[in-house]
Write a protein that binds this DNA or RNA. Sequence first.
DNA 1: GACCGTCGTTGATATGAGTCAATGCGCCGG
DNA 2: CCGGCGCATTGACTCATATCAACGACGGTC
Lengths: 245, 245
Amino acid sequence: MATRLARPHLLDPHGAADPCATCDARSLSVCNAIPDRDLARLAAIAVVTEAPAGRCFIDEGEKADSFFNITAGTAKLFKLLPDGRRQVTGFVGAGHFLGLAVSDTYAFSAEAIEPVRYCRFRRAKLRALLDDFPLMEKRLLEVAANELVAAQEQMLLLGRKTARERLASFLLLQSRQGMPCGHARQRFGLPMTRGDIADYLGLTIETVSRTLTRLRGEGLIDIESQSEVVVRDPGALEDLAGGLY
Amino acid sequence: MATRLARPHLLDPHGAADPCATCDARSLSVCNAIPDRDLARLAAIAVVTEAPAGRCFIDEGEKADSFFNITAGTAKLFKLLPDGRRQVTGFVGAGHFLGLAVSDTYAFSAEAIEPVRYCRFRRAKLRALLDDFPLMEKRLLEVAANELVAAQEQMLLLGRKTARERLASFLLLQSRQGMPCGHARQRFGLPMTRGDIADYLGLTIETVSRTLTRLRGEGLIDIESQSEVVVRDPGALEDLAGGLY
DNA sequence: GACCGTCGTTGATATGAGTCAATGCGCCGG
DNA sequence: CCGGCGCATTGACTCATATCAACGACGGTC
C-alpha cells in the first residue's frame, strides 16, 4: 500500500513537464475532451494532490470553491444526518469528476478509502476554461446525465429492494466496476469496509455480513477473504438484483 | 379539471405564430437560454402535446428518441422492478426537462398525475440546436447538477430516515415547491395520491397514512382535506427532517 | 510474542414498518 | 337515489431488519 500521509500532499505544484498529457486517468475522464495541444492550459490550473486512506478531502457544507477529478485510488461520497447517520451515495475511482453542484457549498463529503490522487481546479478557473472548450462541457453533461440515471437506480434499490436484493445488486455493480460495458469480472476485490457497504445500501453492518454469509451458503458467491469476492452464479445474482442492472 | 383525452393530444403541430415566445413555462425552463430572436428555431422542433391524468407518456425501457419539457401540470417519474414494486424518483412540474440520459432507452417512466402539457423534441434535432446555443447546454448542465444534488438528498432519505422523518422532509419539500428560494407556503395541495407518496418515500400507503395522522395529532400539521395540507409547526418539521433541507 | 484496536461474524432479542383485513368517504354513472 | 369504485384510514398481527452483545481474526506496535 502507498505511503500514508498526515494530510493531503501537493505534488509538483507547478513543476513537471506536462502532467495532464501523461495522466493515466485522462482517457477515463472528461479531460479527454481537451485536445493534446491545449493540455498545458488544463495542467496550468490543475493542482495535483494525494489523500491517504481515511482522509476526508471534501466536507459537506463547506464553501465549494473547487472541482475535483480523481486520477487514482477510490473514495466514498456520503451525506450525514445531524445525529451521525450516514448515507454513502457512491464509490468513485479514477476518472470521476466531483463537485458539479451549482450551490456554493458542497452537498456531500468525500473520504479516501484507498490512497487517492486527485486534481483540484478552482471553480472560476475551470469555468473560464470550459468557455473555450464546449466539448468538455458536453462531456460533463453526459457524465452528469449518467450519474443521474445511476442515482435513480440507487433510489429504486434503497426504496424498494430487500437486503438480499441490495447485496446482489451491489456485487454485480462491483463486478462491472471499471470494466468495458457488458463485461464483468468473476473475481474482484472490495476496497470498502462492511460499514461502508452498509451505509451505501441503507443497511447495518450486521445485515450486510449475515446476508453475504447466506449468499455464500447458497452457492451464489464465494468470499475468499474479507475483501475478495467470487461470483459463482451470476444468473441467480441478476435475478435477485431485479433484472438487467 | 381539464378535459381527459384518450391519448396524448397534439396541439398546433405546426400552427400558432410563436408558441415558445408566449410559453408560461419559458422563464422556468432551460428554454430561457435561447434569445427571443431565435425562438422560432426552437418552436420549429417542439411538438406540443397534452397527456390527461393517469397517462404514461414515457415508458422505461422504450427506445429513447426524444427529450421532453413540461410546460404545465404535474407528472411522476418512476422505475419498476420485475414484480411490480415501484419507486417514484420524483414529481416534476412546469419547466422540468426530461430525458437527459445518454443511453438509447429511457431509464424511467413518466405518468401525468394532473393533466400535463409538454414539448417533445427529437433528440437529434435538439442536439443540433444545442450546438448553436452553448448557453442552453450550460443551463442543462446546471439543471442536471441540481437534480444530482436532489437525488443524493433523496438517497439519504431512503437509506437512513425513519417514516416520520421522510414525511416531514416530503412535506417541507412540497411546501417549497415552485417557491422562490428560501420561501415556503404554509398551506398547499398535494396533487399525488397516498400511493404515489408511499412509492416516492419507500414506504407503504398505510404507513404514509398513519404517519400523517400522527403528525396531525401532534399538531405539526393540519390535513384540511385528503390533498390539502397546512404546516402548523415548520420548525418542528425541519428538526424532524434532519436539518436544513 | 503479548497487547490492542479495528473489522467482521454470529446469536438473541426488540421494533418499526409491512401485510392483511375491515371500514369509511367522496364521486360518478345509471 | 342507489350502487359501485377508487382512495384513504384504522386496527390486529407478522416479519425483516435493527439493536445489543459476545467473540474471533487480523495487523501493527512496543
